[in-house]
Computed example of a mutant assay.
Amino acid sequence: MKIGLYFGTFNPIHVGHLIIANHMAEHSDLDQVWMVVTPHNPLKKKSTLLDDFHRLHMVHLATEDFPKLKPSDIEFKLSQPNYTVNTLVHLEEKFPKHEFSLIMGEDNLKSLHKWKNYEVILQNHDIYVYPRISSEADTSLKGELAQQNLELKNHPKVHLIDAPIVEISSTFIRKSIKEGKNIQPLLPAKVWEYIDHNNFYKK
């Protein structure tokens, strides 16, 4: 089975995440997309990051009607700080019959060369890239960096997927909830109910 790994803090998961994940599951050769919830890094200040359990539970609520989308807490069991290359090794050992690929936005592809052992990841795993609206900083890429970005985009393991461009951020959702705005259309109904019931993000 071919599994796409979609990493995120999902703080909270919103309809933008679901649109991308479902598009990848339905319009690429992936059989499933696993929503990998990134655990709280104990070395970093917690700030507005909800506990791991709550963020994972919201992913469960959001994906229960999508059989091709699965929540994953695989990184909860790994030592922190963790690197994607280590997660991939762990998953391959645990699920030897699955083939794992990464799902990332175009903005993350631009910084892939900064990842630990990124050459190993590219050598062993496909990467499915969804489009993002480029910022001015991205359009001014020059010289070596621009060449590196072009080489990554043209890499045989990198697949650019014509997915919808979704510019919804969890940061915007948290800020809006704190300000008392109605953001229900941006969240799956069950996720909104869970957040509202628990008074999350209001402080």
Results as ranks from 00 to 15, higher is better:
Glu106Gln: 13
Phe100Lys: 04
Lys157His: 11
Lys157Arg: 10
Ile195Phe: 00
Asn154Gln: 15
Ser169Glu: 04
His54Asn: 09
Val37Arg: 02
Gly105Val: 04
Ile121Tyr: 05
Tyr201Glu: 02
Ile3Asn: 05
Ile74Lys: 03
Tyr118Lys: 04
Lys114Arg: 08
Val36Ser: 00
Asn41Gly: 00
Met1Ala: 13
Asn149Ile: 05
Ile3Val: 15
Ser79Met: 11
Val158Asp: 06
Leu150Pro: 02
Pro164Gln: 01
Lys157Trp: 06
Glu75Ser: 05
Trp192Ala: 14
Arg55Leu: 03
Ser47Tyr: 11
Ile74Ala: 14
Lys45Thr: 12
Ile165Ser: 08
Lys68Val: 08
Arg55Trp: 03
Asp65Gly: 13
Phe76Gln: 03
Ile13Thr: 00
Glu99Arg: 10
Ser140Pro: 02
Ile168Cys: 12
Lys70Ala: 10
Ile3Arg: 09
Ile177Tyr: 03
Thr139Glu: 15
Arg55Gly: 00
Met104Cys: 07
Tyr201Cys: 01
His40Gly: 07
Asn22Asp: 15
Ser134Arg: 13
Lys46Ser: 10
His125Ile: 08
Leu78His: 05
Lys70Met: 12
Leu78Thr: 07
Asn41Asp: 10
Asn149Tyr: 11
Val33Leu: 10
Ile177Met: 02
Ile127Phe: 00
Gln123Tyr: 12
Leu30Arg: 01
Thr9Ile: 04
Val85Asp: 03
Ser169Gln: 07
Leu150Gly: 08
Gly8Phe: 04
Tyr83Glu: 11
Asp107Ser: 09
Gly143Ala: 07
Pro81Arg: 04
Gln148Ser: 10
Pro39Phe: 04
Ser28Leu: 14
Leu186Ser: 00
Asp65Met: 12
Leu109Glu: 05
Ser101Glu: 02
Leu69Asn: 00
Ile195Ser: 02
Lys203Ala: 12
Asn82Asp: 09
Ile183Trp: 03
Glu64Met: 13
Leu43Glu: 13
Gln184Ser: 15
Ser134Phe: 13
Lys114His: 12
Ser72Met: 03
Asn11Asp: 05
Asp51Phe: 06
Pro164His: 02
Met24Glu: 06
Pro42Glu: 07
Pro71Ala: 15
Lys44Cys: 04
Met104Ile: 06
Arg132Thr: 01
Lys178Glu: 02
Leu91Trp: 09
Tyr6Trp: 09
Glu26Cys: 11
Gly16Pro: 13
Val129Ile: 07
Tyr201Trp: 00
Asp138Ser: 14
Lys97Leu: 14
His17Asp: 01
Asn124Val: 07
Lys116Gln: 10
Gly105Ser: 11
Val89Ile: 13
Ile183Ser: 01
Leu56Gly: 03
Met1Phe: 08
Ile183Thr: 07
Lys94Leu: 14
Lys68Leu: 13
Ile103Thr: 11
Leu102Ala: 08
Val15Met: 12
Glu179Phe: 10
Asn11Val: 00
Leu152Lys: 09
Phe7Tyr: 15
Val158Glu: 02
Gly8Glu: 06
Pro156Gln: 08
Glu75Lys: 03
Ser28His: 05
Glu106Val: 02
Asp162Asn: 12
Met104Asn: 09
Ile183Arg: 02
Glu136Asp: 15
Leu88Ser: 12
Gln147His: 08
Thr171Ala: 02
Asn182Met: 08
Ser135His: 14
Pro188Val: 04
Lys181Phe: 15
Gly143Met: 08
Thr139Gly: 09
Glu151Ser: 11
Met35Arg: 06
Leu186Thr: 01
Ser28Val: 12
Leu160Met: 14
His23Leu: 04
Asn199Ile: 04
His113Trp: 10
Val85Tyr: 01
Ser169Met: 04
Leu91Gly: 04
